[in-house]
Design a protein around this nucleic acid. Structure first.
Lengths: 222, 222
DNA sequence: AGAATTTTTTAGACTACCCTAAAAATATCT
DNA sequence: AGATATTTTTAGGGTAGTCTAAAAAATTCT
């Protein structure tokens, strides 16, 4: 049984949405918004995916990936993230330029290729945005870090990833001089708007809005 | 105007066939055989390609690429051959393992990607089978070498490429120990069956059938 | 040249994936 | 609980790309 490019995109969307909202059931409208297809189109596809045992679908009740569907989705995500590493590390693309190309490359079908690419890249654990790369067995061994605004305390952190992948946001981070691996020292948290006064790598202090802080993933600096 | 993956494959087929037979007009049946589609399907597609000004099509008279069609075909071929270099040089695939994967990768759409890949690979002029790689302007600066059987004289040659890309043929060459760059010394040409008695890199003598000799591209060793 | 064969096109049909409009089911509000 | 609003599905239709069968055009054979 072959899984088409379009089907792969639906499975990936369902996987992403179910993790985004920490709910196992994903609704037709959520998928429709995410993929920018009409709800009727999504219903059509859900029936086909259910037919192929890639999802469990109960009309009007939303969908859930089966184990087979989950494995397929994870594999696509693994490929996407490995290709992103290739584009940034080897071809020297900027981290805000790689998404669209990786969206195409993620559908290339060859297990041998992915295995060799993984080795060529040095079996990376994270992609250029700090997202963990599933291993060949579909296991996510590394856990995603917490956003800065959930650490409700001063202290020094390391910037390890982002929650938001839009070009606009990534370019904003670049323009304020923030790169993966930088130290972020939280000097103050403003009560009224939850903005953060921070220092990046001992430079001058600046402010992060709560929106920015919620999309920056950090670990506590050791 | 976007050109679909399927359309790209038709354009590539037309380009390849017109060069294969040194004829500018390619017939419906030739395309149908090459792509393993039915002739009726091909006719359908030819109408669509003509509509898009990618080919000149006169019913019952065969087709010819327009300049636009030629540029598109060459670009796909450039991508295919660059990806083959990547697979062999960087990911250490064998030359008989890369065709199917490159058939997928050739449709990835990003000029920036191809330019950077070209640089990353050191702007190669030939792919792993000795086929010349068109430059970014669609020019083929290197000319394809001649097959061994067209040099009707003894002497020493360098093996620079193949005419036939099937796994079976490539594996045959590997099994007899022939690699790109090897020296081939022609000791005898048998009149009755046009087979060749040769030495590869000063090893023991062996025979090439005319079929093998016609698919091995060589240059005269200086 | 006329008949037979081959090649190509037309006609009609199918699947995958998308759409709009309307109907049905579910959720929300008073 | 009943009305209203929202979500989801059904019904019907469109395009790209494939097919088979039959018709038309071109080529080959005698």
């Amino acid at each position: 049984m072959t899984i088409s490019l379009t089907e792969e995109n639906y499975l990936k969307a369902i996987y992403t949405l179910s993790h985004l909202f920490e709910e196992s059931e994903v609704s037709t409208n959520q998928i429709s918004d995410h993929l920018k297809n009409k709800a009727a189109t999504v219903t059509d596809m859900l029936k086909r995916l259910a037919e192929k045992k890639l999802i469990n679908y109960i009309p009007y009740q939303g969908v859930k990936l089966t184990e087979k569907g989950r494995r397929t989705a994870i594999k696509v995500i693994r490929k996407h993230r490995l290709w992103e590493v290739f584009l940034v590390d080897k071809l020297k693309f900027k981290w805000d330029e790689v998404h669209e190309i990786a969206e195409q490359l993620e559908h290339i079908n060859s297990d041998e290729l992915i295995q060799r690419l993984d080795e060529f890249l040095g079996k990376p654990k994270f992609d250029p945005h700090g997202d963990p790369i599933p291993d060949a067995n579909g296991q996510l061994n590394s856990v995603k870090a917490l956003p800065l605004n959930q650490h409700k305390a001063k202290g020094t952190f390391v910037f390890v990833g982002v929650n938001e992948h839009s070009k606009a946001f990534l370019q904003h981070l670049t323009s304020i001089g923030l790169k993966i691996g930088d130290a972020i020292k939280v000097e103050e948290i403003n009560e009224f708007d939850n903005s953060f006064k921070v220092k990046i790598n001992k430079n001058n202090s600046q402010f992060f809005s709560n929106k920015v802080a919620s999309n920056i993933l950090v670990e506590i600096k050791k």
